[in-house]
Amino acid sequence: MNTINSVIEKMMDYYKGDPKRIQHFMKVYQFGKLIGEEVGLDARKQRVLETACVVHDIGIKASEEKYHSSAGNYQELEGPPIARDLLASLDYSPEEIDRICWLVGHHHTYKNIEGEDYQILVEADFLVNAWEDGMSREAVENVRKKIFATSPGIRMFETMYM
């Protein structure tokens, strides 16, 4: 089994009985994968991106248990150590794990987005969240202006929401 499928399987086990969370990360993964391929990420960045897309919300369970909230700041705080534990048993280098955990710890921070993998993760998550959260037309337009920067991400967002 390839590594990304192993991560998906572990995340499905982690969210067993929670189809909403499983379907969310699967959609973010697919949008992230597609955008990364379309912008031409190299194989290592693509692997890091795809993995981060799968595990990006891994901190939600701990956030809800500790803080009774799934707010993004709590996810960013709680997610990286859990992601690190999940990835440690798989075929990732320490540098890849560090970057994936950094992305998990910043995926709700929208200022100073640096790096293609970070930009694409945020865009993929918004492509899904805009629908799942029922964002207003005004919020959708604001997200498009302030967040989206990749050509494929913009095209997908505008195709779905504008």
Rank of each mutant, 00 (worst) to 15 (best):
G153M: 04
D85V: 06
L77G: 08
A71G: 13
A149M: 12
I97E: 01
H106K: 15
R137D: 14
E114K: 13
D85H: 08
Q119M: 15
K10Y: 11
M160T: 05
L86W: 04
Q119A: 10
E78M: 12
K61V: 09
V140S: 15
R99P: 00
I113T: 02
V140R: 12
L77W: 10
G79Q: 05
T109F: 03
F31P: 15
N2D: 12
E132H: 09
G153T: 05
D91N: 14
K61T: 02
K20S: 04
Y15A: 01
V48M: 07
M26E: 15
I35S: 10
V39H: 03
Y161C: 09
K27Y: 07
E158R: 10
Q46W: 00
E64M: 13
Y15G: 02
R44V: 06
G79C: 07
G105I: 01
M1A: 07
E132K: 14
V28K: 03
E78S: 04
I8S: 03
A62S: 11
V128T: 14
V39W: 00
S6K: 09
C53W: 05
D125Y: 06
D18Q: 15
I60K: 02
M135V: 03
I100F: 09
F126T: 12
T150I: 03
D98F: 03
A83W: 03
E114W: 08
Y15C: 08
K10N: 10
E95K: 06
E50M: 13
N73D: 04
H68T: 12
G36Q: 01
G153F: 01
I58W: 07
S151V: 15
R144F: 15
V104R: 06
Y74G: 03
E132T: 15
H106S: 15
G40I: 01
E114C: 12
G134A: 08
E116C: 00
V39N: 01
D117L: 01
